[in-house]
Design a protein around this nucleic acid. Sequence first.
DNA 1: TCAAATAGTGAACATTGTTCATTTTTTGAC
DNA 2: GTCAAAAAATGAACAATGTTCACTATTTGA
Lengths: 196, 196
Amino acid sequence: MAGIQKAKSEETQRRVLEAAVKAVERGGFEALQIRRIAADAGYSVGSVYKHYADQDALVTAVDTVTLARIKTAMAQAVEGVSDPLEQLKALARAYLAFAQEHRNLWQTLFALKMAEGAPTPDIHVQELVDLLGFIAEPLRQLEDGLDAEALAARTRTCFAALHGLVAISLEDRFVGLTTETLDSEMMFLVERLAGR
Amino acid sequence: MAGIQKAKSEETQRRVLEAAVKAVERGGFEALQIRRIAADAGYSVGSVYKHYADQDALVTAVDTVTLARIKTAMAQAVEGVSDPLEQLKALARAYLAFAQEHRNLWQTLFALKMAEGAPTPDIHVQELVDLLGFIAEPLRQLEDGLDAEALAARTRTCFAALHGLVAISLEDRFVGLTTETLDSEMMFLVERLAGR
DNA sequence: TCAAATAGTGAACATTGTTCATTTTTTGAC
DNA sequence: GTCAAAAAATGAACAATGTTCACTATTTGA
């Protein structure tokens, strides 16, 4: 008869997180309201706090889901692609596509975590390292003269540049480019970064 | 005897904005609280709302100040520099320096305005066009084969790439690079973007 | 001098994150 | 099966904050 408590606890945590992800997907960062999520998940506000210390913890949990999804998308992007330059192009397109298709999740992931004094959870750091790993491998093949440290720095630079292009492309403030222009600019950036 | 009302109104608006800028500088986006700002400026909350429709309007006003400061920094950066590649490098360094020295203002400027349905104010669009203009001019000299439209797209791409590097460098999530490495990576990026 | 217009006030309200005393359910020993 | 302790769940209450608005104080122009 034992095990009911554990199962209930896990289900509650899972359903709360599901409701939180859906809330962010629908309404962005601001839609992550405890009362709303508790109601959507079918619990009271108190139950949410039993599993997540505060709103930040819930955002962090949503971000963890987002990172996992990005990782999956990146892994699929390079699947079966052997040419390093083509790998980088595929990764760039996958990253842009994810941001466009999951705009609210992506924006929440990069919406100033910096303001908080809390350190980044280990799981996030690991996921980010994995993401950078996708870029590091083709880069290593293209720039064979780099030592490990330089490669790590170069990898981050390449990711950051692509990230910036994606971030700016999602902003309304900058006059929008056509989809074709954005893609060609992105490919230009990848080629220049790859030294081609 | 006339003119007192106008002077008072303008002073109130100015002092409220000054308090708002200082609040953001000190505590970031989250420090922009109406009560706190009203008290700092020496007015009641109602007076703040006489000059700014809501919190968003006040953030927008702060962002306008930030954009003007960035524009000034960029203008100073290229002053007396004639070589186009050196101009781009100076602009990149100035942009990074501003973000580092005015981290909270910079972050607030790029903290998801996207969530709001409100359109970007004209003054912001104009300032952003001016900022891109600083980059467009040296780019035009370096890539003489581009037509106006392609140059505009390329300019945005270069800005976005630099912006991404700056944004990621300010994040704690990514293991920090030394100042020297960051600068050398930034120069690498500029040179590659410039086709050198 | 005075009535209208403007500037300024702050109490009151609505929303939302958070806490905690209480109730309901589960567990394991007897 | 009984029951006391532990865990899960509840929701009222509190605190912080954005926003409104009826009211007061000041300025204006005739």
